[in-house]
Design a protein around this nucleic acid. Sequence first.
DNA 1: GCAAATAGTACAATTTTAGTCCTCTTTACC
DNA 2: GGTAAAGAGGACTAAAATTGTACTATTTGC
Lengths: 153, 153
Amino acid sequence: MLRISKLTDYAIVVTAAMAGDPKRIFSAAELSSETHLEPPTVAKVLKMLTRSDLVQSFRGASGGYRLARTPADITVAQLIVAMEGPIGMTQCSVHQGLCSTEAVCALRGHWQQISRAVHAALSEMTLLDMTRPTITHTLVPELKLHNQTTESP
Amino acid sequence: MLRISKLTDYAIVVTAAMAGDPKRIFSAAELSSETHLEPPTVAKVLKMLTRSDLVQSFRGASGGYRLARTPADITVAQLIVAMEGPIGMTQCSVHQGLCSTEAVCALRGHWQQISRAVHAALSEMTLLDMTRPTITHTLVPELKLHNQTTESP
DNA sequence: GCAAATAGTACAATTTTAGTCCTCTTTACC
DNA sequence: GGTAAAGAGGACTAAAATTGTACTATTTGC
Ligand code: FES
Ligand code: FES
């Protein structure tokens, strides 16, 4: 299914909520009730994002979190990388020894190429885009070109 | 990490091996020794691919498997879909009820857009491409346009 | 009929992921 | 200075998904 983890999904929900008011400092509890996610989960996500410098944290009473940059400068790719590590689709992008003859195997280079393409696609969507009304920048005509033979349940 | 499953990886290794001689009928055992993957694993993968009509199977003595189409007509996207189901990156692409207010949530549509972009990227790589020497069709200049701020170990 | 080979299904073990909790440190405010 | 609010960090449990394997049935060539 080629999916991101739930935690990553949450991270985007939470940051999208923060993007609604980029200057404001939100406590984890506030974000929890706003997003309807469990407080410990929200806290965990925010901590991870803080370590990657995508959000700023303020400790102490009346502390909280704030986006470290403007929503337009935070991409989905960055969020995914922060939560899951580098985008690489195969084991063999990292290790080797899976394939027939490692030395001869052409697949590896191609996987890296594919990963870059995916990364590029994910880099084009920013948090700002995500907060816009859904079908905003409709590239609908373009989409018709790829008629999904593979449906979507 | 946004990765495909190992089984999917194997599927591509196996089909790439078959692409080396598209007309030939390989037994699962042959493919196993050629790819250095365990026989039961190779068998499982081939069965799944058969159900999606990406490979043809021939039962009985001297039976085996063969690609159902030419390598140029089988894309990585098709292989991934065959192994993992439709490409959709989030839960919320399928279910709903995760986000603040489902009705208002702008994310869902954007996720679908992203998934389509990824699918398009994966559709551009065929099995034929995969069997070519690694850096074959270098779209390198194009890649430079997206300077990865997020590195890649 | 027999042997080779796939189909299909079911299962156990492993590995990941999710989710929670607890303790420590920092800071605002009285 | 004391107290309470809030985050940092890590450890731990439980649940889910993935892997890998085994077994039985069916098909086909000789
Ligand atoms: S399949 Fe990844 S290096 Fe060969
Ligand atoms: S986050 Fe997916 S629908 Fe809102």
